[in-house]
Design a protein around this nucleic acid. Sequence first.
DNA 1: CCATATAGTCAAGATACTTGACGACTTTGC
DNA 2: GCAAAGTCGTCAAGTATCTTGACTATATGG
Lengths: 160, 160
Amino acid sequence: MVKDLDEKTEALPDHVGWRLWQASRAWQAEFAAAMRTAGHGWFTEARAGLLGHIPRGGIRQAALIERSAISKQAVQQLLDGLEAEGVVQRLPDPRDGRGKLVGYTRKGLDALRDGDRIKLQIEHGYVERIGQQRFSALMDALRTLHTEQADAGDEEAGVQ
Amino acid sequence: MVKDLDEKTEALPDHVGWRLWQASRAWQAEFAAAMRTAGHGWFTEARAGLLGHIPRGGIRQAALIERSAISKQAVQQLLDGLEAEGVVQRLPDPRDGRGKLVGYTRKGLDALRDGDRIKLQIEHGYVERIGQQRFSALMDALRTLHTEQADAGDEEAGVQ
DNA sequence: CCATATAGTCAAGATACTTGACGACTTTGC
DNA sequence: GCAAAGTCGTCAAGTATCTTGACTATATGG
């Protein structure tokens, strides 16, 4: 079963899933590194996933739970961390005594601005590496894929 | 700071990083679901990441650690789990008393075969959804991106 | 043989989630 | 009004997937 190995290593996978995963990981690593360099050391992948669902104008925590499609306890814990870092703040909802409004602090808005700038820089680097035509084709394919996917079975996670 | 929200939800992001992440997550979810349906309930994303680095002919654990670019303790724990599931087996290396050879069991090889089949099915579904041309352009862009990336700064993780 | 490096393991801790239970508040039906 | 039922956020505990640190066993070069 085991013969002459480590003489010749087997090739790495080369299917869509692996390529997408690699590209996604690379992008995230580049983004996170740039964010840390920009002084946002609190930035992590999990927090980014949540922040992407918090509009600049704020959002009710319950709505955030629905949008982010993770358990409300996970959202709770992530918000606890972000609040402790001073990135977001939770204020009572004046229209519903049960609710909380999640909004950005000055520090959070600064981070968003830096994030937008970094995204553009990374995108620019991609265009330089693979050319505008390939890049446009990439975005077109990804967008189309996403649209056709949403049209089919909708995979909203059933939150508790 | 907080005005009329939940009347109009802000649009979701639309940059390369987010698209890649979405597409990658969707692929993984589809693959994992199909694997579970095929009877491989032990299949998880983390284990998949490691299995992708184990050639069918087996590999020395030290070489696997280097290839997978995660800590040797993480590899250890993942292998413990996979071994407990009966997917892989660790045999002593006859050429080095310190080493272990990680190889697939019959069950593991069966899973690999099913995995390959499922990958082709998913790929076929993608082509149906976005067309052969867009799909080829997607793969071309991802491959080029990866190549140009490797040519630049090489990001091998420093394993302990 | 001994010093040093390498291969694998054991233990403990961090992060990012999960389910379950609960108290505070609002809405609904009568 | 007001009690039943639903919603909102929280507290507590557990799981999966990593990490760093410390250790044992084996190999190798002089």
